[in-house]
Design a protein around this nucleic acid. Structure first.
Length: 176
DNA sequence: CCCTGATTCGC
DNA sequence: GCGAATCAGG
């Protein structure tokens, strides 16, 4: 993947908005976070002017089932949470359902007491045959992405999103 | 251990 | 110029 003008522009935009290198890499697709950082430096825009909005990764996934019962398609979902998808399970579930409508995805409502697996945050271009295509977040927002969990088989959904069972994200990190 | 950006250096 | 490896840090 090469740095086309569009990709560079997007990089500049996302970087200035405070997204982390890894998030930007996920948005762009086809590049590592190192590549993004390297590019950022070459472009001499490492300063980033504003104080970073970064590091909001929240702790453990606490399952708040109550927030997810009931019909989230009732319009209430649109007023719900703008917070980062990673902040809470309740918010994640609601945003997911909201996005589902827009993408015309087959809706499978998550069961009440299921732990939501960590998203790999894949961009549209990164989806493959065996990555979960469950949309997460507001489709009109930068933060929008796809679950991306590897199903481990030829299913387009991860275990969670197809079978409503928990599937830990298999090694996301290289062993060192 | 998770993550972050910064730097180096072979390609 | 590019980006993996590495470093330093939260």
């Amino acid at each position: 993947m090469n740095w086309t003008d569009e990709r560079v522009e997007l990089l500049k935009k996302l970087w200035s908005e405070g997204l982390s290198a890894s998030q930007i890499a996920a948005q762009l697709g086809g590049v590592s976070r190192n590549a993004v950082i390297g590019k950022v430096h070459r472009l001499k825009l490492s300063g980033r002017g504003k104080t970073s909005t970064t590091q909001t990764r929240s702790k453990k996934v606490s399952t708040n089932s109550a927030a997810r019962n009931g019909n989230v398609h009732s319009g209430a979902s649109q007023t719900v949470v703008r917070t980062s998808v990673t902040k809470s399970v309740g918010a994640t579930a609601l945003q997911t359902e909201y996005a589902v409508e827009a993408v015309a995805h087959t809706v499978i409502k998550p069961a009440a007491d299921v732990v939501v697996p960590i998203s790999r945050r894949l961009s549209l271009l990164q989806l493959s045959e065996r990555t979960c295509k469950w949309p997460i977040g507001d489709p009109l927002n930068e933060d929008f992405h796809f679950c991306g969990n590897d199903s481990g088989e030829s299913s387009p959904y991860c275990t969670y999103h197809s079978k409503l069972a928990f599937q830990p994200v298999s090694e996301r990190r290289r062993a060192r």
